[in-house]
Design a protein around this nucleic acid. Structure first.
Length: 613
RNA sequence: GCCGGUAUAGCUCAGCUGGUAGAGCACCUGAUUUGUAAUCAGGCGGUCGUCGGUUCGAAUCCGACUGCCGGCUCCA
């Protein structure tokens, strides 16, 4: 535990202590430190609400002021159980009710492991520690919110109230933390996306379904163009496939019905439905017969892979054709739980910048590296440099994985080797691989400190076998190709959401929906303004003119708020000299330059995808 | 899906203990012709999320539903 985590965990004890002073019957489960603070799970008849925080914090402050020393005590399992029965664990004294969660926790401690208590003042808790020397070691704290959580994280267990708080060594650090949270709130993609008119979610269209408005659509198109160009450089072929496919296709791939609960329900043909209705087939019956494969229908595709597999299989392949790299901006639909939906980052319909590579085993290592390079290039272009790489490997002791163990070893080693060439830290996590192969994920940190899994590269031994794919080798025999799935953005929706927060809506010129706005100081130069817009538009620059009767100050303010990267002030002086007065949104007034000089400059910034500082 | 919170004009929000709605911005109109972050005046705009209940009377109290927010669970 780090020093900060020790402070926070100690603060969790103080929280429990304070709650007991107010509600002596409270039962506590676990109170660990977490990323931005700590929590303690409590079972209590009274519903704790933020209005109670002041009262609780007052008790906590009193406990901290008392500088109660934390005392560690090793006890036997029997002693621990006896104390739990008397309700003394996470209590201030013996109580009529036993410490039920603590008793359960004791049963989970492996035999032979030391059982320890920590006491401060009247409060005793079953705890492995460590803690600060005394409660005054908690410099500054604040309760933040209350939520509910299942005991042990299991849906079948009772729900507890989870009280969240945070603590720091000093008040200054606490303030800094809240200032950062405030900044994060300002950048929230749901707020900024609405303000800038980038996307819209409409209840009558459906939860988790994104409507890309004209401005957002420009950004998406720019991102697609960017990726398309990178794909062309790396020898990919782009394809288009439909949004639905026959159930049998997804039965073969294994997606249906294995993942049925996270898919939109199947579409059954009208004739079939009518026939079944005549037979008096019930809904439950229908569901069963669809699952059993007796009835065919169509499925909104939850993945693009089977479609790409069919393109690969549509003609005979020789080893000379490999690798075959098929790319598509493919829209997929998944039934995410309603409580999981969140703006653009967690949705029910999304477009992956997907591709599938069909390669020989010898090509796998090189192709994996190529995929990682692509992801790295993409993230670098957006200066998203705060990321880590996670390699998910199989659990060698489990038999749930498909494919030859020797192939797995090779694939896992290829993942490691490829990741090592990136020059960023990577972790290996055993047992996290998909059943069909190992994968490499890029986990990017956003301004809130939340981690987002964006880019992903996965090796797949399974689908080629399920679909009976083959190519003719140099030996004239049929061989099974290896598939690589990869998506540098993950999904355009999620990536856009993260980008909005990353740039706080202040996008680089190449991505900005409106790149330049001409601000005439009066109507006298309206014609000049129109001609500048026409010239820039003709050269592929997204420019508009603000011809409203507002004063210049108001026009500038509006353009600043709407995050237009360049404001171009023109008046009689500029018109006479054929100049433009440039105001950068980020750098302010830059003075007058020749019209063509500015146009060339903005053109090169767009072409080079320059990131404004 | 579960727990809690929440829903008032296009947006941000006010409306105390029940007496049929208000501000700023946006929008429209007019005046102003403006030089680097808000010109002035007037106007339009809401069956207070939906349905039901309590009441002489509901934005306000109660219930259900829906959306959203914070978590939990989940993310092939």
């Amino acid at each position: 535990m780090t020093e900060l985590e020790t402070i926070r965990h100690s603060c969790a004890h103080v929280l429990a202590n304070a709650i007991l002073r107010i509600w002596p019957e409270a039962q506590f489960a676990a109170g660990p430190p977490v990323d931005n603070g700590f929590y303690y799970d409590v079972d209590l008849g009274h519903r704790i609400s933020p209005e109670d925080f002041e009262k609780i914090e007052k008790e906590m402050a009193a406990i901290i002021a008392e500088a109660q020393p934390f005392q560690r005590e090793v006890i036997t399992r029997d002693e621990a159980l006896a104390m739990g029965e008397r309700g003394e664990l996470a209590g201030l004294s013996p109580r009529p009710q036993s410490s039920k969660f603590k008793l359960d926790i004791i049963t989970r401690i492996p035999t032979g492991e030391e059982i320890t208590l920590y006491r401060n003042g009247a409060f005793t808790d079953l705890c492995a520690g460590p803690h600060v020397a005394d409660t005054s070691g908690i410099g500054a704290f604040k309760l933040t919110h209350v939520a509910s959580a299942f005991y042990q994280g299991d849906e079948k267990n009772p729900q507890l109230q989870r009280i969240y708080g945070t603590a720091f060594a000093s008040a200054e650090e606490l303030e800094k933390h809240f200032a950062l949270l405030e900044e994060a709130r300002k950048r929230d993609h749901r707020k900024v996306g609405k303000e800038l008119g980038l996307f819209h979610i409409d209840d009558s269209v459906g939860q988790g379904l994104i409507l890309w408005t004209p401005k957002g659509a420009i950004m998406r198109q720019e991102m697609q163009n960017f990726i398309s160009r990178e794909l062309a450089k790396q020898g990919y072929s782009q394809v288009f496939t439909p949004h639905i496919g026959r159930l049998d296709l997804f039965r073969t791939s294994g997606h249906f019905p294995y993942y049925a609960e996270s898919q939109f329900p199947p579409l059954i043909e009208r004739d079939t439905m009518e026939k079944l209705a005549d037979e008096g087939c019930s809904c439950a019956d229908l569901g069963n017969r669809v699952s059993a494969g007796e009835i065919d229908g169509y499925l909104l595709k939850p993945m693009n892979c089977p479609m790409h597999v069919k393109i690969f299989a549509s003609q005979p392949r020789s080893y000379r054709d490999l690798p075959v790299r098929l790319a598509e901006f493919g829209t997929v639909y998944r039934w995410e739980q309603s409580g999981e939906l969140n703006g653009m980052t967690r949705v029910r319909g999304f477009t992956q910048d997907d591709a599938h590579l069909f390669v020989t085993e010898e090509q796998m290592a090189g192709e994996l590296k190529g995929c990682l390079d692509l992801v790295k290039t993409v993230l670098g272009t957006f200066r998203m440099t705060d990321y880590r790489v996670r390699i998910s490997l199989r659990d060698p002791s489990s038999d749930k994985y498909v494919g030859d163990p020797a192939n797995w070893d090779r694939a896992e080693q290829a993942c490691r080797d490829a990741a090592a060439t990136l020059g960023v830290p990577f972790t290996e996590e055993e047992g996290e691989a998909a059943f069909y192969g190992p994968k490499i994920d890029f986990v990017v940190k956003d301004v809130l400190g939340r981690e987002w899994q964006l880019g992903t590269v996965q090796v797949d031994f399974n689908l080629p076998v399920r679909f009976g794919l083959s190519y003719t080798g140099a030996d004239g025999k049929a061989h099974v190709p290896v598939m690589i799935h990869r998506a540098p953005f993950g999904s355009l929706e999620r990536f856009t959401g993260v980008l909005i927060e990353h740039f706080a809506g202040d996008f680089p010129v190449w991505l900005a929906p409106e790149q330049a706005r001409i601000l005439p100081v009066s109507e006298k130069v309206a014609d000049y303004a129109r001609s500048v817009v026409a010239e820039m538009t003709a050269r592929g620059i997204r420019a508009t003119a603000d011809l409203s009767p507002e004063k210049l100050g108001a026009k500038i303010r509006l353009a600043q708020v709407e995050k237009v990267p360049y404001m171009i002030v023109i008046g009689p002086k500029e018109e006479a000299a054929g100049q433009l007065s440039i105001r950068s949104r980020q750098r302010g007034d830059e003075g007058a330059v020749a019209k063509d000089e500015f146009i060339q400059r903005i053109e090169s910034e767009i072409r080079d995808r320059t990131l404004t500082v």
